[in-house]
């Protein structure tokens, strides 16, 4: 018996991966997980931003949100997944789990950004009676830039990790997680490494693309 089961040689993994890339089913599988994990990510981005805005504006909102965010942050991903499996079907599991993992990261970073907004500029806007929209575009968005970039950079990887972990446990049909699960069941370490490379690749590619788009957005914003 060889050791290929335990540790597949790189050339075999690459060959396996190349073969996968040519299959239509591979792209459907990636698209399935991509769509769900990103749905969770974007929903968390939106909710986290809105909750941070509320907490930044009203101290009471921050106090009320604190226990929820603390619980979400410190609960193990596996506990969430198993809990969610009771209430949700396997298809929606990765959406919700990646949402829960990303939400506190976005909320904490955005709130910190809002808190560190230059008070002198806000006072200046108050004197000129500048509308909320202009304040958001000219004061908050630029000041939030490092916090938004940091939150997105960290949370995209986390969304993929947690989303795929949820799929491995929930095993929705046609997902990347199902492929990883099958690789485990059939002791297919070549497939396991190939799919892991796919997850890392897609996660990194999306992170680079999204951060690139955010930077482009900021370059455009600064030229208005």
């Amino acid at each position: 018996m060889g050791y290929d089961i335990l540790l597949a040689p790189p050339h075999r993994v690459v060959r396996h991966l190349a073969g996968m890339l040519l299959e239509g089913r591979f792209w459907l599988t990636v698209a399935y997980s991509f769509a769900r994990i990103l749905t969770g990510f974007f929903c968390a981005l939106l909710t986290g931003a809105l909750l941070a805005a509320a907490a930044g504006r009203f101290r009471l909102a921050e106090i009320l949100l604190w226990p929820y965010m603390t619980v979400i942050k410190s609960t193990p991903v596996a506990s969430f997944i198993i809990l969610c499996l009771i209430f949700l079907n396997a298809e929606r599991l990765s959406v919700f789990v990646s949402y829960l993992i990303v939400l506190p990261i976005v909320y904490t970073n955005f709130l910190q950004g809002i808190r560190s907004t230059d008070k002198d500029l806000l006072e200046m806007a108050e004197v000129f009676r500048t509308g909320w929209g202009k304040r958001f575009v000219y004061i908050y968005l630029p000041q939030l830039k490092p916090y938004i970039l940091a939150a997105c950079s960290v949370s995209i990887g986390m969304a993929w990790k947690s989303g795929v972990a949820a799929e491995v446990i929930g095993i929705p049909r046609g997902s990347v997680g199902e492929q990883l699960y099958e690789a485990k069941v059939y002791l297919d370490s070549t497939g396991l490494f190939a799919w892991t490379l796919v997850i890392v690749g897609v996660s990194v590619a999306f992170e680079k693309a999204f951060i690139g788009l955010l930077k482009l957005f900021y370059r455009r914003l600064e030229r208005i």
Binding site: D120, L121, E123, M124, V127, F128, Y138, I139, P142, E222, R223, I224
Partner: peptide
């Protein structure tokens, strides 16, 4: 309207 003692400009904007 005001000109403050400090400039209070929006640094990243032209």
């Amino acid at each position: 309207s005001a000109v403050f003692q400090e400039d209070r400009v929006l640094e990243s904007f032209n």
